[in-house]
Simulated scan of single mutants.
Amino acid sequence: MKPSPAAILCLALALGACAREASKPRQVAQNGTLPPVVVTGAPTDPTDPFEATNRRILDFNFQLDDAVFKPVAKGYRAVLGPWPRQRIRNVLDNINEPAVAANRLLQGKPIEAGTSVMRFVINSTLGLGGLFDLAPIGGPPKQVADLGQTLAVWGLGDGPFLMLPVVGPSNPRELGG
């Protein structure tokens, strides 16, 4: 049974970050499990006032990664080769371009906003719906901008470190963004 394109796109949305980043090696106990996180009562870092909770959530995330995300990501990579994975990534990046343009405009950067709009139009038409990124052959360059960056430009501080279940590390500004 061959997976449908819709199922592949949903899987790509769920695993986009997992497939892009190489996992860093972690210290594993001799029995093959991760050592438990030792949590002390008082935080050791003033930028992490929720250290005890953040450590518990990090441990949960590692266990979830090992039990669910890693096997699914390996299956995704086994089913789809590099070429279709890159096409999926290109489409997802192209879908994000209007948000990048809006954030560049809100940051007071109209030239960069125009570049993102041009990139979206060119990749959506000549790039066949975003399947192909034309930046390597002279198309508009890719930019990265999100609401968290926009809020930073507006002067909002980042706040304390937060480890979120499934999502990973963040802070209140980036979480709101």
Results as ranks from 00 to 15, higher is better:
V117Y: 05
N103R: 12
P141D: 04
L34M: 05
A113E: 00
V28D: 01
K74D: 11
A102G: 04
A12H: 07
P46K: 09
L151W: 07
E97A: 14
L126I: 12
L34Q: 05
L64A: 12
G155K: 02
K24N: 12
V38A: 15
V91I: 11
P169F: 00
Q30H: 13
A135P: 07
N90V: 10
D45A: 15
P169V: 11
K24A: 15
P140I: 09
T150D: 01
L58F: 10
K109C: 12
G127V: 08
W83C: 01
R55M: 13
R104P: 12
I88K: 00
Q107V: 14
T150L: 11
D133W: 07
K2R: 04
G139L: 03
G157D: 11
G16D: 03
L92T: 00
D146R: 09
R104K: 15
G148M: 02
N123W: 06
R77K: 07
P3F: 12
V37A: 15
D93K: 11
A6E: 03
A19C: 11
S124Y: 01
A67R: 07
I137D: 11
P84M: 08
K24C: 14
I137W: 08
L80Y: 10
W83I: 00
P165H: 01
V39H: 06
L151Q: 04
N123M: 07
A101K: 00
G159H: 02
G129I: 09
K24D: 04
F69L: 15
E112Q: 11
G129Y: 01
N123L: 06
N96D: 07
I88H: 00
R77D: 09
R26S: 05
N61K: 03
L9A: 01
E51P: 14
F50I: 11
P82G: 15
A99I: 10
P43Q: 10
A152E: 04
A22E: 04
V72A: 10
S116P: 03
L92G: 02
N96R: 10
A135Q: 01
L15W: 03
K142E: 12
P3I: 06
L147V: 13
F60A: 12
A152V: 14
A7C: 06
P25V: 05
L9I: 06
L134D: 02
S23F: 01
A14N: 08
F60K: 08
G32S: 13
A14V: 12
G32C: 02
A22F: 06
A152S: 12
T125C: 04
L105V: 11
P84T: 02
A7M: 11
L128T: 14
A101R: 07
F120A: 00
D158F: 09
W154E: 08
I122G: 05
A102W: 12
W154D: 08
L64P: 01
F120G: 01
K70F: 07
D48M: 14
F62G: 15
G138I: 04
L105H: 09
L162D: 03
L175N: 13
A152Q: 11
L11A: 04
G129M: 02
S124Q: 03
R104Y: 13
F69H: 14
R119N: 08
E174W: 10
L134R: 06
A17S: 13
D59H: 11
P5M: 00
M118I: 13
A6L: 13
